[in-house]
């Protein structure tokens, strides 16, 4: 009982909010955060796609080790790593069970391990890149590679709203708790209580949708008065906005270093 309480205290909505925001904004000082977004896009374009086409187990292991190093350097939040591991194990485990069920045998473990390895490389590359770019950098990067202003604005705005929405959700959820009636008995393995909370978690979304629709009206008007439409349609605004983006020596060294590492993997393994 003591443990469950400690666990639920850690797992509060407040905590999730803090972790999310830290993932988005908290890594400003790392090596990756100082790179140009284009470098990161280019790097990701390779490490996010090529593992699918590589079948040498040793090369994959080499890539995996490289990803472990980058993930460490990028100082990813433990929560994200935890979720990632959960996802990978779940995925691999379920495929194993499925293969056993449909007449496969234990030899299917090896190919599954290779698949999991590939997925790990790709996932670690993704979190290295996307956790190292704060939303502002990501949106500027996207703007630079030619996506329309509306898309890059939506990303920055989404992050601005995230804490507000979480907070509002929290309020609604609490109102449900205070006005509803929790089950009298926890039930076998807390089943009644868990079912009760899941039901509340789903119900709480409806009021949130309605109130968000209401607040959006002011935002849309404000955007109009702040000249956003003018900005999205004028090239000089884009230039002004992206004036700070520059490829530096650091970017070229990093790309060259990654390239040399990959070539040596193929040559020596």
């Amino acid at each position: 009982m003591e443990y469950t309480r400690k666990f639920t205290e850690k797992l509060s909505v407040e905590q999730v909010k803090i972790e999310l925001l830290n993932t988005a904004y908290g890594n400003g000082g790392t090596f990756f955060a100082k790179l140009d977004p284009r470098t990161l896009f280019l790097w990701y374009a390779y490490f996010g796609i090529f593992p699918w086409f590589i079948h040498e187990v040793m090369v994959l292991i080499g890539m995996f080790l490289f990803m472990l190093v980058t993930t460490y350097v990028a100082r990813i939040s433990p929560l994200i790593i935890f979720i990632l591991c959960l996802g990978l194990l779940g995925q691999g485990g379920y495929l194993l069970i499925a293969s056993l069920f449909f007449g496969g045998d234990w030899t299917s473990i090896l190919p599954l391990l290779i698949l999991t390895l590939k997925l790990s490389v790709i996932s670690l590359a993704s979190i290295t890149v996307f956790c190292s770019m704060n939303p502002e950098k990501l949106s500027n990067g996207l703007l630079k590679i030619g996506l329309p202003g509306q898309i890059s604005f939506s990303i920055a705005y989404g992050y601005r709203m995230l804490p507000t929405l979480l907070e509002e959700y929290h309020h609604v959820f609490q109102s449900f708790r205070l006005r509803g009636k929790a089950p009298e008995k926890h039930g076998f393995l807390y089943i009644n209580t868990i079912a009760y909370f899941i039901k509340l978690a789903v119900l709480s979304f409806y009021p949130l949708l309605l109130s968000t629709a209401k607040r959006a009206r002011t935002t849309v008007e404000a955007l109009e008065t702040k000249g956003s439409m003018y900005g999205f349609n004028h090239i000089e605004v884009k230039k002004l906005k992206l004036a700070g983006l520059k490829m530096k020596k650091r970017d070229y060294y990093f790309l060259a270093g990654s390239l040399v590492y990959m070539i040596s993997l193929f040559l020596f393994l």
Binding site: T164, Y230, G231
Partner: peptide
Amino acid sequence: VGYVYQDFENQIVSPKVIEDAEFAPLHYG
């Protein structure tokens, strides 16, 4: 004409203070 709404929170569109203050002049180029 500058307009501050009654529900002013919804007219703040950027995540950082300085970015929000820059938003309008930046988007007017």
